[in-house]
Design a protein around this nucleic acid. Structure first.
Lengths: 193, 193, 193, 193
DNA sequence: AATGAATGAGTCTTCATTCAT
DNA sequence: AATGAATGAAGACTCATTCAT
């Protein structure tokens, strides 16, 4: 038990170190040796937990993505109205993106560069299904514009990534008022009037 | 004369090769030797035109960004109404992002990763001023929501990057109908009603 | 134990190879790859033991210089008379310079070219203090000319470097008679009559 | 004529630049491009005057060595007494070494490292013949110790190189009093008493 | 004679990965 | 399971030299 826990701890430390370092330097500027050092293990030990560097990053991506979606839908239930449900989900996502910066930034990097295997990326998208379902319901009820899910995502969720990156970069700070403005913009862009 | 032209051609070929390769592999997975090969020069020749790899990418970024903003504002004049002007600019940008894929993808990579020097990034951004001015006018005229420029950008321009990336990736294809939907969503998100 | 010894052996082999190769070709004409080959390790291994090429040469210099001064003063004690002490030290130095050719030649190269960091040079020089103290005593006792230590060094110790280099080059061979002549010349040049 | 002069000027500028740069950085850390730049010519032009880098340095060495010996013996005539002649020559050499620092330092570098072809070095040595002749006369007249010319050189001329290098390095400054001390030491070391 | 552009060969250094313990 | 040492392969960059003009 203690031994198993230790293993899990090491694995987590490696994932965490990977995220931090890749965020700051990018994938190729992050040597395995540095990841090992930050996780307090030997470089060779990494290969007991992961096949190779690519595998390590893929796994990190999948885990963070899973944590993200779990967080996003934690307070949502299918019996909510479309508007209520969207607001709940959107604000959870905003909360995640703007407060869990490390994870969010890592996801953004992975989503925007050829750093993750295509297969791992696909693995990550399907977790958003509840949101897609909600949108479907909204379209059927005539509350949400009958447009492609990609567009709905582009205009409601993706802007949060942009804001997060710029906040990280120190270009702008996002407070609660901004969040409310952002939510309004998101909703205005997709609601059917 | 012929010599000068040859020099310019070589420089352009290097910039072009850099864009293509960085798009496909990312900055650190793009060796100078490959850039040289694709541009049909010796690796050493690159250093006649650029100080080092970082400089090469910075210069590529600045040039592409300049081409982008030139394209964006080519048909816009300040005597247009806010709504008209916004539509003109937005559609030029959409046109660029969805048709000049290589350049657009390269800009997206540069804007989302720590690949470009902060100074070059600033250099590239400053050309967006006409759009910011237009927004300012729109806010004063009560046509556009009185919210931060970052939000306006996040909800009108940035979604196009997301759509472009996904189109590039083969995840979705954008036709004219989509564009119109997207424009409507962009405008709805920022107009004051 | 065996492992530690192996590490030490490798380090020593690297230092030795550096000395030999720099002696024959000079610093810049000695590639790390050749040093590695001569020490029977991979080039990358060098960087486990030294920070970079400059560091390797600096460390080699410091070690050889330390060995030199240790040898020089091994048989000298402060209770000896000035004349006796000088002869003891001088002959040890002559012995070192003319028999431990590799080390001596390496020191001469380092001392005459901008190859070693100033700090390492200083580090290496400070061990000559006992000789300077002896000279001080000699001046006070009216046995040695009251002239600058640089002059004393130039006329007693430095000539040995010149002779060593020329012997190495095959220009002249130094036997015991020569040594005695040389000692006499050295002493005559600095003694107060 | 004007054309010829221009050629000579260029050649001289190249030799001069070589000396300066090799003094400061060493042979291998002195690129041809820098030499060209300092001499205000194109790199390609160097190859009109010299076969290659090695040839350039060899020629520079031979010319400086010739200038040195010319200077050394300029005021000496064979009808002088041994003591007088030695003093004349020694002081000219001292004058050269301590005042024409660039040339002297360059010679020292060349004489102490594997930078010059053996043949060029030999070419350079023979110019000292008048001093060797003087010493021969001194030995015959019982004025100078009957020891090898190498020893005589090591104890009278070579110390000046050591002092010059250290002066260059800023370690010690040599004034007229020092020179007199040095001359005395030199003479004491070789005179027969 | 003179050159600026071009380059192939080579240098230092890094790093993902393996291996002996 | 864990590691520190070791390395082959690769990458950025430099430079002596040549070539077209």
């Amino acid at each position: 038990m203690a031994k198993l826990q230790k293993s899990i701890d090491k694995r987590n430390a490696l994932i965490k170190a990977t995220i931090t370092l890749v965020n700051n330097n990018g994938f190729h500027a992050t040597p395995m040796s540095k990841i090992a050092k930050m996780a307090n293990v030997s470089p060779a030990t990494i290969y007991l937990y992961f096949e190779n560097k690519q595998d390590l990053v893929n796994k990190a991506y999948i885990e963070v993505k899973a944590a993200f979606t779990a967080y996003a839908f934690a307070t949502y239930t299918e019996d909510m109205s479309v508007k209520e449900g969207f607001e709940i989900i959107w604000k959870r996502i905003a909360d995640f993106k703007l407060n869990k910066c490390e994870e969010a930034l890592f996801l953004a990097q992975c989503d925007n560069t050829p750093m993750i295997d295509e297969s791992s990326r696909k693995e990550g998208i399907k977790h958003l299904q509840p949101l897609l379902d909600l949108w479907q319901r909204g379209k059927e009820e005539g509350i949400i514009k009958p447009i492609s899910d990609y567009l709905l995502y582009a205009y409601t969720i993706n802007p949060l990534s942009f804001l997060m990156i710029n906040q990280e970069r120190g270009a702008c700070a996002i407070d609660n008022a901004h969040i409310e403005d952002a939510y309004q913009a998101a909703w205005d862009s997709i609601q059917l009037t």
